[in-house]
Amino acid sequence: MGTAKPVTTTQAVVTLAVRRRRIRWGDALAPYLFISPFILSFITLFIGPAIYSFVLSFFRYKGYGSATFLGLDNYKAIVTYHVFWTELRNTIFYWLAHVFVLMIAAFLLAVLVRSTIISRKNIYKPLIFLPNILATVATALVFQSLFGTEYGVINSLLGTKIPWLQDYGYARWVVVFLLIWHGIGWWFVIYLAGLTTINPEVEEAATVDGASGWQRLRYVTLPLMRNTFIFAFVIDAIGSFRIFNEPNVLVARGGSLANPDMAPLLNLLMSDLRSARFGSSAAVGWILFLLVLVVSYFQFRIMRGTGEEAE
C-alpha cells in the first residue's frame, strides 16, 4: 500500500495554469461549437451554392452532361436583351411606386394607433396586420377576381369594362396596389415596435417645452426612428427586387410566366430555369444580386447622410 506523494508548490502552480488554459480554450471554443450547426448549414446551403452558381454563370449547362465554358457570353446576352431592360424597368417601377406610399401609410398608422386619439387599439392592430397573414398567391388570386374585365367586382361596381389586368398600363398599378395592401400590416408592426423604443420622457420633455404634435413628430419621433426607417427601406428594396408572385399570379395564364412588358426581373431567371439554361439563369441571379447591393448601399448612404445632417 503506497502513500500519496506530496505535491510541491511548483507542480500545483503548473497544474492550475494548465487547467486554466483548458478552461480558457473551452470558453473560447464553446460559442463556435454552439453556432457550428448554423455555420455548417450556411456554408453547405448558401456559400457553397453561391460559389457554384457564380462559376456556373460562365458556362452553358443543362443540368446533366458536360458544361461548356462561355466566358462572359451569358452576361453579355442578358444585358443586350431588351427584355432584361424592360423587366428591370418594371421591377424598379414596382419598387418606387409602392415604397413611399407603403412606408408613409404604415408609419402614420403606427403613430395613430400609438397615440391617445385612438381607443380600442387591440382591435385595430390585428385588423391592420390581417392582410399580411394571407398568402401572396391567394391574395393575388382574389385580386384577379376583383379586377376581371368582364365580371370583376371593381368593374361591376363602376359599371365599366376597364381591362385592369389585360392592359399592362393598368395591371402594373394593380400590382402596386396589391403590394401596398399586402405589405402595410407588416411595416405597421415594425414601425409600432420602433415607436415603443422611443423614451416617452423625451416626448414629454418636448411637450413641456411647448412643442406641437407636428413638431414632436418632426423633431423627436422621426430622427429617433431613423434606424427603423433604414431597416424598412433597405429590406423593402431587397424584397422588391425579388418580386415574383404578385405580377405573375395576377396576369400569367395556364402555367406560363407573365408577359415581359409586365414581368419583374426575376422572370428572366425563372424563364431560363424552366428552359434548363442554368448558366444563364445563374448570371441573371448575380446581376440581380449586384443591383440589390448597389441599391442598398446608396440607401444606406443617403439615409445615414440625411440623418447626420439633421443631427
Binding site: Q144, S145, G148, T149, E150, Y151, G152, P163, L165, Q166, R253, G254
Partner: peptide, 17 residues
C-alpha cells in the same frame, strides 16, 4: 371574340353567362 383570355377568372364566367 369576347376579349378575355383563357384561364382568366372571366373565362369560366364567360361560359356560365
Amino acid at each position: 371574340a369576347l376579349p378575355i383570355d383563357d384561364w382568366s377568372t372571366d373565362w369560366q364566367k364567360g361560359f356560365t353567362d
